[in-house]
Design a protein around this nucleic acid. Structure first.
Lengths: 145, 145
DNA sequence: TCAATAAAAGATAAAAAAGTCTTTTATTGT
DNA sequence: ACAATAAAAGACTTTTTTATCTTTTATTGA
């Protein structure tokens, strides 16, 4: 596996997709998103339900409904998406899975992991969801396959 | 989850444990290792079989048997253990799971991930298995719970 | 009010990861 | 040769993750 769970990968990609479309002023259906990010439609539906409950995305039922975001969520850091799905296990806790690992009783890789965790965390905290819209618009970056 | 799979966490901890004991000149049984690193014994047995087949650790059956390492494996980088269990998904491939993500067709987080992946890779490549023995001997670092 | 639309919710199913238990094989010292 | 030891191998079970399919609820516009 990569750094995130598959579920989280879909979540991030869908959030980028929704953000991108929101800036263009349109709502998007699950079907459109699933196609746009190459994800299984029904599985994505579950993920979006979850993100919606947690306030990361907004949704509206019925005709002209779909998913969208408001300006304040567009400005939220990426870490909010990751934490909503994968939790904080990537930044918190021992890299070797030891419960009692701490500064005073560290695992052998404690200091090495600290650096890496901080890197990941910093990256996710210092990037906003919306800041990737520009390159998506220009077709410089992709979300599919 | 953390950065590694649970299997990989056990693998790294067991390798540290075996390395530590090897330097003291003794072989260790699965039972001892499992106790020493707080892992399920039979599950660990499977992992060690795997590591043994891949040449990360050595093993001997029968009385006075057990697991141990030779000097050349003690000097191998940590990345060998990680790759043997979790593969190279952590350093190679797209952080958002996109197959066609590349320098020319990057995912939105391509550059951000590149830095992180390089950090992780560098950390694992530049550390040897044996270099953690000192602190383990001194009781400064732990492998249990 | 009604038909169409789209998300929410629920119920399974399949695959992968994690964990357990039993049997077999190799080695050793007596 | 044999009993004891310890890893190797094999067969399962459980849990978690990933994925699919169906039904329900809310909303809209005609």
């Amino acid at each position: 596996m990569g750094i995130f769970s598959k579920t989280c990968e879909y979540a991030i990609r869908s959030v980028f997709f929704i953000a991108h479309r929101t800036e263009k002023g349109t709502r998007v259906s699950i079907k459109e998103i699933a196609t746009g990010i190459s994800s299984p439609e029904h599985f994505l539906a579950k993920i979006l339900q979850d993100l919606s409950k947690k306030g990361i995305v907004k949704s509206a039922k019925g005709p002209n409904g779909g998913f969208y975001m408001d300006e304040s969520t567009l400005q939220r850091p990426l870490v909010d998406v990751v934490e909503a799905i994968d939790g904080n296990g990537l930044f918190v806790g021992c890299g070797l899975g030891l419960i009692s690992c701490s500064e005073s009783k560290p695992c052998p890789l404690h200091n090495e992991f600290k650096v890496i965790r901080e890197n990941i965390h910093h990256m996710l905290v210092s990037t906003t969801i919306k800041e990737f819209n520009g390159d998506l618009n220009l077709g410089i970056t992709i979300l599919k396959k």
